[in-house]
Amino acid sequence: MSTTNILLKVNNLKKYFPQKSGVLKRPKNFVRAVDGISFEINEEETFSLVGESGCGKSTTGRSILRLHEPTSGEILYNGKNILNYSTRDFRKLRKDLQMIFQDPYSSLNPRMTVKKLLMEPLLTHNICTKKEAEERIIAIADKVGLAKEQINRHPHEFSGGQRQRIGIARALVLNPKVVILDEAVSALDVSIQAQILNLLIELQEELKLTYLFISHDLNVVRHVSDRVGVMYLGQMMEMAKTEELYSDPLHPYTKSLLSAIPSSDPTEKKERIILQGDVPDPSNPPSGCPFRLRCPMAHERCKVEEPMYQEVKDNHWVACHLYNEIN
């Protein structure tokens, strides 16, 4: 790869939500939504976070935009820690970092026309005059596949797929560098999902975007990403290049996750690893390895010692005692 310029680097990020109880609302316990994860995203790359619900992938995305203020850790954008920025300075930076949400029904204000929805970010950031803004809106609407006459309509007049196009246009109208896509295609039907994924890939190439793609859908992730990180209970379990992760998963969790995807070929009978039980409560995680209660390979050591997250192969990181012997 020619460009290995790290654009975004997340270092030991933690986000604990306090659970308050009693009359005085003192925090009694903490939900460890994100518990010390690190990763980096190169310029013009798509990095994906996958995991089951409650594993902290969305919290990670939101923490990067400081929609949740992280408990500790570092987020370096272009080498500078954005957590040290004042609110005012951060707001200036915010136009570089944009987000596309899952539900196109609830993330668009029903009272605003598409034009107003797209105008708002431009005016908030004082980027251009109203007149220039209008030209930009028409240009971006065209890029995401909305017709010029549609921009005076309200969100309810659009179907789910088209609404997601509006959401994409709203994020891209500011010419961002990094776009965080939080389950951006999960609410869409298969045929519409394919349209939107194609659009996202095209736009990335054209506008030289960097994506942080958050999804639970392993097939979609495989299609869009360069590298993938697998999260479980707020921690990173494994991280590798997409093809390597899918062809040679190391962590038992990744293996079972991949084996659980229903195959779209009825003749293919694959070996299934069916996990027992549910994801543990993140306010009361098990000792040692977070995955050990469901892990088919768990042994004594997993109970007492938390596995190190380490690079076992070139660019292939894993947190599991099974791979400790290699070092």
Partner: peptide
Amino acid sequence: VGLLDSVKSLGDRTKKLYSIPGNV
């Protein structure tokens, strides 16, 4: 055919995803 194609082409990054144009 379109439905199956849009599922089967998932994962192959070299190809564009097959999608059915338009809406329901």
